[in-house]
């Protein structure tokens, strides 16, 4: 099925394209908008963006695959990025990741059994002074310990009963 943006988002695109002297400069912001709507970059989204910006689909595909924040596969409603780079890791980032894998019952790169979380490994989140850090969706969580992380997930489980099965 062909993809299209909701009218509200489509309005944003019109405004967006006034910012640049070329259409294709809107490529990355537009892909973000599409991902905001459907959660990932499907081949329909690629077609849509290519048409909207007069690009070839290979160019859009090249762009999508270049950047790690564009999901090439469907992901869970919540995405957890765990920083694995040095400053976080020397403050325990790897143990945090192991704990998350255990608690969610999935490895990095996979989705939890209840389908609520996709766990991904992130390179430096620019939170080194507050490491170890993770990002859940748009939110940073910093200065974490296993204990603090558990609390965050517990609170999350209360708010989202669907996710309670594995996050407890």
């Amino acid at each position: 099925m062909a993809f299209s943006l909701t009218p509200e988002l489509e309005k944003l695109v019109d405004d967006l394209l006034t910012r640049y002297p070329t259409k294709r400069a809107g490529c990355i912001p537009l892909l973000h908008l599409c991902q905001r709507q459907v959660g990932w970059i499907s081949s329909e989204v690629i077609d849509f963006v290519a048409k909207r910006l007069d690009m070839s689909t290979s160019e859009v595909k090249g762009v999508v695959t270049f950047y790690t924040m564009f999901h090439q596969r469907q992901v869970a409603p919540n995405v957890i990025w765990v920083c694995r780079t040095l400053a976080c890791e020397i403050r325990g980032g790897r143990l945090l990741q192991k704990h998350l894998e255990k608690r969610l019952g999935c490895k990095v790169g996979e989705t939890s059994k209840d389908g609520q979380f996709t766990l991904l490994s992130a390179e430096c989140l620019a939170a080194c002074g507050q490491g170890p850090a993770i990002q859940i969706n748009d939110q940073y969580y910093e200065n974490l310990t296993v204990e603090k992380l558990d609390k965050i997930l517990d609170e999350y489980a209360v708010e989202n009963p669907k996710a309670a099965t594995v996050t407890k």
Binding site: S43, D47, S56, T57, S58, E59, K61, G62, T65, F66
Partner: peptide
């Protein structure tokens, strides 16, 4: 005819054909 491009990055890169073409 921009029918080819590069996909992925680093040593996973490869040449990609325009999807749908």
């Amino acid at each position: 005819d921009h029918v080819l491009d590069k996909r992925e990055r680093g040593n996973k890169s490869e040449i990609v054909l325009s999807p749908g073409r």
